[in-house]
Design a protein around this nucleic acid. Structure first.
Length: 292
DNA sequence: CTGGTCTCCTGATCGC
DNA sequence: TGCGATCAGGAGACCA
């Protein structure tokens, strides 16, 4: 569900409540949303049953440690603890439906509450994820290795680096934008929005995009993500920040979710399609397949 | 290596 | 009201 602006909005709303606090207790209610050192390699939704999961050592989940900062790379958020043994971290990947929420004092947990952290001040925070495409990765040695595979953060990616990375692949440019190793943070909504703003058709071969068009695309990605963060992200169905507030950027979407309606730029009916197995909307008239 | 397809999972919505 | 098909903001595994 969430892309970079939603993750950043969540990070900011959690930062205030978590930084400087000590984790008093951790309840793992579903072990299979957690990846710990020694677990089979791979993601959260795959290879869960290959062999039994390792036993979690308490500090892996930050129990007893003080939270020093919340960081983000692309769509991944990390809760980092500063200790003299290094900087243990938890990387939280939200997948399609994951979130982190502050829990009130109700007795029952919300549905699909998989991990609960209780702070020394009594406040509780939960990782909640109905579809379980997301998860929590325990990184006792910090985020460095885990984040090495991610491309540059989309919010700050430099035009020349972005251009060089696009030039390396002959996939559809939208597929390249969705690849977190190319650039980290762009998902289905903002890929369509940025391509529309840049007048580039999603199926254009990435490597064939001229340098000036690629530079413009990078600039539009940064601008759109920044604007979306400014409005608290996009709430399509159920995205909420940690306090339960929806975002407002969905009102600014030009193409996402608007297939069959007129192009806001030229009036041509926007065409829905599938690119890289994802629902895609573009204007067949003003988004060029072969940018000049 | 590269790029395309399948799959993980729950829940909302739509057509019959 | 019920039921099956389809669709979701993601991304790792697998295959040609």
């Amino acid at each position: 569900m969430p892309e970079l602006p939603e993750v950043e909005t969540l990070r900011r709303s959690l930062e205030h409540d978590l930084v400087g606090r000590t984790v008093a207790r951790v309840d793992i209610r579903r072990r299979d949303v957690v990846v710990a050192p020694g677990d089979p390699e791979g993601g959260f939704s795959r290879s869960r049953s290959d062999r039994p999961p390792v036993r979690i050592k308490p500090p892996w989940m930050l129990r007893g440690l003080t939270i020093a900062r919340l960081t983000r790379r692309g769509k991944q958020m990390a809760v980092e603890a500063d200790t003299d043994r290094g900087a243990p971290a938890l990387v939280i990947q939200l997948g399609m439906t994951g979130t982190v929420r502050s829990l009130d004092d109700r007795i029952r947990y919300p549905a699909h509450t998989h991990v609960v952290w209780t702070l020394e001040n009594g406040r509780r925070f939960a990782f909640i994820d109905p579809r379980r495409f997301g998860g929590v990765r325990a990184l006792p040695g910090g985020t460095r290795d885990a984040w090495a595979a991610l491309g540059p953060d989309a919010l700050t990616v430099r035009g020349d680096e972005f251009t060089a990375r696009l030039a390396r692949t002959r996939r559809a440019v939208k597929a390249a934008l969705l690849d977190q190793a190319v650039v980290a943070g762009v998902g289905n909504i903002y890929a369509d929005e940025a391509l529309f703003a840049s007048k580039i058709h999603p199926e254009t071969i990435a490597a064939g995009i001229p340098r000036d068009a690629a530079i413009r695309l990078a600039s539009n990605i940064r601008r759109i993500l920044r604007d979306a963060i400014g409005r608290g992200g996009s709430t399509i169905k159920d995205y909420r920040n940690s306090d339960g507030e929806p975002g407002g950027f969905q009102a600014a979407h030009q193409v996402y979710g608007r297939g069959g309606r007129p192009c806001p730029r030229c009036g041509t009916i926007l065409t829905p399609s599938r690119v890289a197995q994802r629902a895609t909307v573009a204007c067949g008239s003003c988004q060029a397949r072969e940018p000049a």
